[in-house]
Design a binder for these strands. Structure first.
Lengths: 226, 226
DNA sequence: GAAAAAACAGGTAGAAATACCCGTTTTGAA
DNA sequence: TTCAAAACGGGTATTTCTACCTGTTTTTTC
């Protein structure tokens, strides 16, 4: 009787979570044994869990802006580190190459966008459970693209450069409507340095101004509205 | 046998739509007879629909950025105008007073945020079907707030002024990284006028710069990422 | 340890945005 | 029709951003 696949849901939107549960419970082979509405509680709940999930469906855009940095990425890192047997299936609204590849590299076993067909979700769950991973065409392309970038850094055309830690710091503050001067103060650096970082950001993200930067940050899940 | 409540779903996220369907189909009294993934097709599909929905669940944040302006609001307007018998239940991620009140004023029969309990959704559906409306505490507060604003315009403290049509035009273009000059050209007005509109926007939205405007637009669902 | 990338910081410019002032015309609602 | 709001536009000034240039120091990576 225990050949059911135990599933854990990590998703903040209540209705989406319930809908997912409703879909999954129409299949005999699945059982939802674990739920969490934010990144924080996942590790706690896993520690005190008697019926461990085999597969964890993780929503990537978990945190509210400014709350903390325990988002889908952090959850993935922590689970990969502490529960290597649990398969992680990322569920995200972001259909972005660099992002998909990043998650896979960090140890996720599959990546699905939220526009996917329910059938694909159930397929993916079965695949990560039995085969250990689920890589669809979309994901494969993203991974290959990243691989190619790693090798030919000489190619000037590979524009989707990753942002550096400091650039991300500046980006977050720019999105908080801070001026260059304020950002410099907050990071204990010169305004000219902030200027440099912002200019690099504009180039790397192909933006024309801060509006573009904010949209980029949102698209990448670096910040959240509401 | 036809005392079932016919339900229509207008929602772009496929998984969410399927989840909703799964939830609703576990109730005998509901039947999903209509689905649409964007604003455009709603009117077409309704015109050629044999089994008309009694209640339409409309996701507010329908359009992709830049595509068009046929979003949840436009759908609401069009359905209210052409199919006054169909009850409209708004489903949104935005928990914003001005926005909620705006939709109700435009003729929506109920407003639920996506964090709601599935039970509340089914309750709301039954309520709009039988009683003609579903106003929960949250919605009532929003409406009252708006009412109060209408009367005491003298009160300086009521800052949540609604944006005008033209201001929204400018806001959308600002979010598309357009400069003042470009916006002026596109709207066939002077750069000074654009300047004026943008200044009003900054004031009304309590923003310090374009970053704030972009975030505001996103929060209000005026634009969408990805 | 050597090489590369990241972070740092300065200069000079010009473009754009922000913050006020002032007014007229058009539109829409009471 | 009358009144208020919206849309329009001009002037002036300051601040901030954007775009280039240059370089040094620190950190990371191989």
């Amino acid at each position: 009787m225990d050949n059911k696949i135990n599933i854990g849901l990590v998703e903040d939107q209540f209705l989406f979570r319930e809908g997912m549960k409703a879909i999954l419970s129409s299949y005999d082979e699945f059982e939802v044994v674990f739920e969490s509405e934010d990144g924080f509680s996942v590790m706690d709940k896993l520690a005190s869990c008697t019926n461990m999930p085999d597969v964890l469906l993780v929503d990537l855009s978990l945190p509210k802006m400014g709350d903390s940095d325990f988002d889908g990425i952090a959850v993935t890192d922590a689970v990969v580190e502490n529960y290597p047997d649990i398969k992680i299936l990322i569920l995200s609204v972001h259909d972005d190459d660099a992002f998909i590849a990043e998650l896979i590299e960090r140890g996720a076993h599959g990546y699905l966008i939220k526009d996917s067909d329910p059938n694909e979700v159930t397929e993916a769950i079965k695949a990560v459970y039995s085969k250990g991973s689920y890589i669809n065409h979309r994901t494969l392309l993203a991974i290959q693209k990243k691989m190619n970038q790693k090798h030919k850094t000489s190619t000037k055309k590979s524009q989707d450069e990753a942002l550096t830690k400091r650039e991300i710091d500046v980006l977050r503050l720019v999105c908080q409507q801070k001026t260059t001067g304020e950002i410099a103060e907050e990071l204990f650096i010169s305004t000219k340095t902030v200027d440099g970082h912002r200019n690099n950001l504009l180039q790397k993200t192909h933006s024309r101004n801060v509006a573009g930067l904010v949209l980029y940050a949102l698209k990448k899940g670096l910040i959240e509205v509401s």
